[in-house]
Amino acid sequence: MSAECPECGSKVELPEDAVENEILECALCGVELEVISLSPPTLELAPEEKEDWGE
C-alpha cells in the first residue's frame, strides 16, 4: 500500500498495520505526513508544530 507524498510527489510505502491519523515520515524529503485515509491511501502534511508561550 502506498500513497503520494504531497510535498515532493514521491511514492511513500505505508506500513501493513498503518492506521488513520498515523504520523509517518517521507523517506525522500523527510517531511512529516499524516495518514488521512486508508482507502484510498491518502497522505497530507502532518499538523504544523508551533511555538507558544505559557502553560
Partner: peptide
Amino acid sequence: VRSFLRAIRAQGAQPTFKVKTGT
C-alpha cells in the same frame, strides 16, 4: 495523538501541534 487528530478533524478544524516555552 491519533485520537486527538481524528477528533479535532471531525469538528472541521486543522489540528496543530504546540510546544510551549512554559512548564
